[in-house]
Simulated assay, not measured.
Amino acid sequence: MQNQGNCYKNVWILSGTSDGPIVANRLLQLNYSVFASVLTYKAGQAYIENPKLHIITGKLKNKDQIINFINKNKITCVVDATHPFAVIISKNLSQACKDINIPLLLFERKSLINNTNNFFYIDNLKDIKDVDLANKNILLAIGSRFLNDTANYYMNRKANVFTRVLPTYESITKAFGSCIKNSNIAILEPSKNNQSILEKKLCDFWEIDYVLCRESGGYSQKNWETIVSGSKMKLFLVKRPKVKNDYAYSFNQHQNLINHIIQNY
């Protein structure tokens, strides 16, 4: 269905490579103009080419920058589908949209965790307690921002620390600049094919005992759940932060989010 009335309606989506392209593609089919904010050039390649799609690359520094972007591009509504742990940008988006009365739609992935005896929720990256880590192999799949500090903590607990980081300049630089041995660093994208999960081969090769990751709700978390389930390994999931947002509408299904945009904007 093409709706010519939507040709002037500009939707701004802030997302990674999983959810943003799905929502953007459908809105483009309905003749919306879509602005998609991503952190890297590579992330932008996940979106299809379309004359009504505008890719914006890089970090947004503050609330004022967000407000200026909304006003300059006549944005009708904003979709926050950023990573669950990207709390700073979510707070800035919420405050900016509230200040200028622009609708904010929050997309939150469902948590995928199953009830098994080797999955554990923890409150923060250094919250693996009551476990003797001496001479045990722990794999950190937590991104690069807090990698060195977290690795140092578990190394002080006598664990052998390994990591998997994304193939981006920032991640690679921080990984090889950390206290982790170079031979204990793997650079790869999270697998999207359930039939061939590279992370499993990595765990087998390194003889991993424990995996530490974040409760993102994305395919990376799903991979670790699949790998650890039924194995002798243990999976520790850092709970996603709770960001109070009484201004945004919240959705956890792509179609419900899209339907809301179609019906209201």
Rank of each mutant, 00 (worst) to 15 (best):
Q2G: 14
Q2N: 15
N3M: 12
N6G: 02
N10F: 04
G16F: 00
S18E: 13
I22P: 07
V23I: 03
A24E: 06
N25W: 05
Q29S: 13
L30R: 15
N31K: 14
S37H: 01
Y41K: 07
K42H: 09
A43K: 12
A43P: 09
G44A: 02
I55E: 04
L60T: 12
K61V: 15
K63G: 08
N68Y: 14
I70K: 04
N73L: 09
D80I: 03
A81E: 04
A81W: 02
F85V: 01
A86C: 02
S90C: 03
L93E: 05
F107N: 12
L112Y: 06
I113N: 00
N115M: 13
N118C: 10
F120V: 00
D127F: 12
K129D: 15
V131E: 05
R145G: 15
L147P: 00
N152I: 15
K158G: 10
P167I: 09
A175E: 01
S178F: 01
N184L: 12
L188S: 12
L188I: 08
S191N: 09
F205K: 14
F205P: 13
E207C: 14
D209N: 09
V211F: 06
I227N: 01
G230V: 06
F236E: 03
K239A: 02
R240S: 05
V243A: 09
Y249D: 11
Y249A: 07
S250M: 09
F251T: 00
H254P: 07
H254Y: 13
H254I: 05
H260F: 04
Q263W: 06
